[in-house]
């Protein structure tokens, strides 16, 4: 049953997923080309000096990409369910309703994890061309919170779309925006908070169960 549900979710998500892979590759290619030109025009010494002494942010073009990916995947996955109340079809399936909802988001989560892992690998590879392991490690740890933001944005967008009560949606939207803004603003400067932020992102996935409950019980 789980594989059938994943199959259905994949049919909805696949084109958006491939588009997001393409967008990610373009962004990483852009970063790689910029690094190549910095290396050429600043000279390797100048580029190193700018990055290591002045903290030149040569990789920040990727910052909002995971956020965008999370939002887009959630929209393409859950909007068709809410259109004409198709979620009724899923919730009428002979299985536990909460389990069905969690299985639906598990596919989105898996795809985001694959994509974000790809981002980390490629960043590691292209930064490693010019810099030593310490700088590569710094770039990856600085990018990690952005990837967590991507996961949180996916869960929060899904919960907002599935929420049938507009008043609750209007509460969830500013909550989600504030939550993501905090992530983006403090995560880089307070790396010690990252464990908490990862935990909070995972807990935010449970919001979908409340939205699903409201839908299931016809709460308006």
């Amino acid at each position: 049953m789980y594989s059938a549900l994943l199959y259905k979710e994949w049919l909805k998500i696949r084109w958006a997923f491939f588009s997001m892979v393409f967008l990610t590759m373009l962004t990483l290619m852009y970063i790689a080309l910029n690094m190549s030109s910095y290396n050429e025009f600043m000279t390797a010494k100048g580029f190193w000096g700018n990055v290591i002494l002045l903290g030149f942010p040569f990789f920040t073009d990727i910052k909002y990409i995971p956020l965008l990916i999370g939002v887009v995947i959630a929209i393409v996955q859950f909007s068709p369910e809410m259109n004409l109340s198709r979620l009724k079809l899923t919730l009428h399936l002979p299985a536990d309703e909460n389990k069905l909802l969690l299985q639906m988001i598990s596919l989105g989560f898996m795809l985001l994890t694959i994509l974000f892992f790809l981002i980390a690998i490629i960043l590691w590879a292209i930064v490693g061309i010019y810099f030593p392991a310490e700088v590569v490690a710094f770039v990856l740890s600085a990018s990690f919170p952005w990837l967590v933001v991507g996961v949180a944005s996916y869960f929060l967008t899904a919960a907002i779309i599935l929420e049938p009560v507009w008043a609750r949606r209007l509460i969830l939207i500013p909550f989600a925006l504030g939550f993501l803004d905090i992530y983006l603003s403090i995560a880089n400067t307070h790396l010690q908070l990252i464990t908490f932020l990862v935990f909070a992102a995972i807990v935010s996935s449970l919001l979908i169960l409340f939205s699903g409950y409201h839908f299931k019980r016809g709460i308006k």
Partner: peptide, 29 residues
């Protein structure tokens, strides 16, 4: 639930699926 077949008003189904895909999907349940 498995004993109840439910036709939603307007014959709503997963419109992003094909005839073959939707049969494959439901058969698993």
């Amino acid at each position: 639930k498995a004993r109840v077949g439910f036709l939603i008003e307007g014959h709503i189904q997963y419109s992003f699926m094909s005839i073959k895909q939707i049969e494959k999907f439901y058969s698993a349940f």
